[in-house]
């Protein structure tokens, strides 16, 4: 179970549930739309205690489900290619009971990828196998093989895409919120916190074609965002960081500590002449 602000991913039984407000049915119940299962979570122990099939009322109409299912398949494909440890869910945000063309509905794509080093359980004690059911899955779970790679660091990538299907204008509006965090604390403590929002739109097509174009828009924006993060990093040494402290003094030579008398003299003279401070 991995907690990231309001997104919590739980591997319970044989499905993966992203515990977020979008998946919340009741206060302890979270829907996994892919398997149509509902996980019942004990928030105190932060484990999944039980699982049940979702009821018809909890699931979208067949019409909306067609769009949701198609998008989920495309996003899964994309996640598999782009995020080595990524998980995703596609929910119906609004209009889940829309039966056919003529009304608006909204899908929400949640993507998250995270890495946590096992040494830092003080923050993530719940990564440890807590119950038998979770431990079985954790043995097969992929995050354990990152142990030797990242010792003292954590990181997470989260994207939430609100996708509104606007029937009257036949347009799909996309609104993405991307958030990336990384934390490295070996003999120091340094953190990256980055956020970005983006908008785009496309036209409404049949479920499968809509899914393909929505997924490709998401892929495009997330790829661009990664490139802009890399650009921010490469601007650091010579531009951004320089406004905090230069690598070398303005004189481009090391500070003349052996000859600081010259400064007091020049200062005295400028003071007497009434120039400078």
């Amino acid at each position: 179970m991995v907690r990231e602000n309001n997104l919590l991913v739980d591997r319970c039984f044989d499905c993966m549930v992203i515990i977020s407000s979008f998946a919340e049915l009741g206060k302890n119940e979270f829907l996994d739309p892919r398997t149509a299962q509902v996980a019942i979570i004990d928030h105190v122990k932060q484990v999944c205690t039980e699982e049940r099939p979702a009821t018809d009322e909890e699931l979208p109409s067949p019409y909306v489900e067609e769009f949701r299912y198609a998008l989920d398949a495309e996003i899964l494909k994309y996640i598999g290619e782009a995020y080595p440890k990524g998980v995703c869910s596609v929910y119906c945000g609004n209009g889940k009971d829309v039966e056919g063309p003529g009304a608006d509905f909204e899908l929400v794509v949640v993507i998250c990828a995270s890495r946590h080093s096992p040494q830092n359980f003080c923050f993530l004690p719940l990564n440890l196998p807590v119950s038998n059911s979770t431990s079985i899955n954790l043995e097969h779970s992929s995050f354990l093989d990152t142990i030797l790679v990242d010792m003292d660091s954590n990181g997470s990538w989260r994207s939430v895409w609100n996708i509104e299907f606007k029937d009257d204008i036949q347009v799909v509006d996309l609104n993405g919120k991307l958030q990336v965090g990384a934390h490295y604390f070996e003999e120091g403590n340094v953190q990256l916190d980055a956020k970005h929002e983006c908008k785009d739109s496309t036209i409404i097509q049949a479920a499968e074609d809509s899914a393909i174009s929505v997924a490709s828009i998401i892929r495009h924006h997330e790829t661009e965002y990664l490139a802009s993060l890399e650009a921010s990093y490469s601007n650091l040494p010579d531009t951004t960081f320089k406004d905090l402290r230069r690598k070398l003094p303005v004189t481009r030579t090391l500070f003349p500590w052996h000859n600081t008398m010259q400064f007091s003299l020049t200062r005295d003279i400028s003071k007497e002449l009434g120039i400078g401070k």
Binding site: A82, Y83, P84, K85, G86, A113, S114, R115, T146, V149, D150, S153, N154, G155, S156, W157, V180, A182, H183, Y184, E186, G188, V190, Q191, L192, E222, L226, A227, L229, E230, Y233, L236, P237, F241, R245, K247
Partner: peptide, 22 residues
């Protein structure tokens, strides 16, 4: 300054690229 720039910022960048490789 050099450690921050090369090591620490570099490690967070590495983490980002682990989450989502270029």
């Amino acid at each position: 300054r050099n450690s921050l720039d090369q090591v620490y910022f570099g490690k967070t960048k590495e983490m980002v690229c682990t989450l989502r490789p270029p």
